[in-house]
Computed example of a mutant assay.
Amino acid sequence: MPAPRLKTTQYAPQDHEAVVDELSAGLNGHAAVINCAGVPDASSQDAALLFGANAVVPAVLARAVSRLRPAPRLVHVSSAVVQGRMPVLDESMQTDAFSAYAASKAEGERLALAELHEGLVIYRPPSVHAADRRVTRTISRIARSPLRSVAGPVGRPSPQALLDNVAAAIAFLATCPGTPPAVVIHPWEGVTTMSLMESLGGSRPYMVPEKLARVAVRLLSLAGALVPRLAPDARRVEMLWFGQGQAPSWLTEGGWVPPHGSQAWVDLGHEVSATSH
């Protein structure tokens, strides 16, 4: 069923009772509910739009599910962006909201957990890639340009995921017989800063000396703190150069295996290249 369209800068449960009633009626009898709704524009500065879609919608949905008996499992698709610049992405509730978008996604997790104490699974995929996704095409353009680069001396783990793998992980979380924890991260798909550039660009990137790259990232982060609309761009550069570590995922422990491996990343690069001309 379509998600409600809400635009607000605060969550007051009593203001959304009609929406909750409608959702409860529509979801009654289902074994699992998946929330993929939200505003995906990480550069948006529209606080009401971001908060309404990414924070309030998960809250009212969780509230609606909590009223059902038996209550279905709710898989809320959040984002690894909520942990920002943490050295290692993990399955804790610790967050680092470095942008308006990240803050809205983090608040969505908090509000949903407050409304539904059992049966909620918060799934945090990293950057999700497919041939028609903007993030993929943007990185591909960079990877095929003279700007293609990573921080030396070697490639580092990078949290990236193929769209088909993310879809398979969501389906697993919704239907697996075991009980997933409250927060589940997407497993590392073996992508490094180097392999991402090579797969999506078709050639080896340049190496930027690590010390120089770290100084540049600090300056970009400072610019993002002073001018909020620049924060997402600063973070993108940091991710492309340095990547980010990932802790083990419950999905792996639960027996889930991504259906697509390293060759799919190479195939994706070829597909993007073929459709970009």
Rank of each mutant, 00 (worst) to 15 (best):
S104F: 00
V257H: 06
L240I: 00
A53G: 04
A12S: 14
W188D: 08
R144K: 04
W250F: 09
R73C: 03
A264Q: 05
H30Y: 14
V166D: 07
S127C: 04
G38T: 02
L162N: 06
P259K: 02
R133C: 09
R134N: 12
L111N: 09
G38I: 07
R204V: 15
A151N: 07
E189T: 05
Y11D: 00
E109V: 06
L147P: 11
L23Q: 14
S92W: 04
A25S: 14
V20M: 03
A225I: 00
C36V: 05
P180Q: 03
V56D: 10
E271W: 08
G152A: 07
R63V: 04
S44M: 04
A213K: 06
Q10A: 07
D21L: 00
C36T: 08
A223Y: 02
H129N: 07
R133M: 15
P70A: 11
F51V: 00
P87M: 11
A37E: 10
R214Y: 06
V154N: 09
P209E: 12
L163P: 05
R124H: 13
S149M: 15
A112M: 05
R67A: 09
P259C: 09
S199C: 12
L240E: 07
D132T: 15
A71L: 02
D96W: 02
G243C: 08
G269H: 01
E118D: 15
D132Y: 12
A131C: 09
P177M: 04
A168N: 07
T193A: 06
R214F: 10
M197R: 07
S104P: 02
R156D: 10
V154I: 03
L222T: 12
H129G: 05
A37N: 08
H129V: 00
T179P: 03
P126S: 13
S66W: 12
S199Y: 08
S199R: 04
Q244P: 04
M93N: 09
A80W: 03
S273Q: 10
G261T: 07
L200M: 00
L212Y: 09
M86L: 15
A274G: 15
T175A: 13
S276N: 01
V82C: 13
Q10C: 02
A169V: 04
R69G: 12
Y123E: 06
A102N: 01
R67P: 11
G155T: 06
N54W: 03
H186D: 15
A80R: 06
V272K: 12
P126L: 06
S145M: 04
R156E: 12
Q14C: 09
L200K: 01
S158K: 08
M197P: 11
W265T: 15
A112R: 10
S149E: 12
H277T: 01
R229T: 08
P187E: 09
R235W: 13
T95Y: 03
P40A: 02
I139M: 14
H277I: 05
L6G: 07
Y123V: 02
W250V: 00
W188N: 10
P232W: 10
T95H: 06
G269I: 01
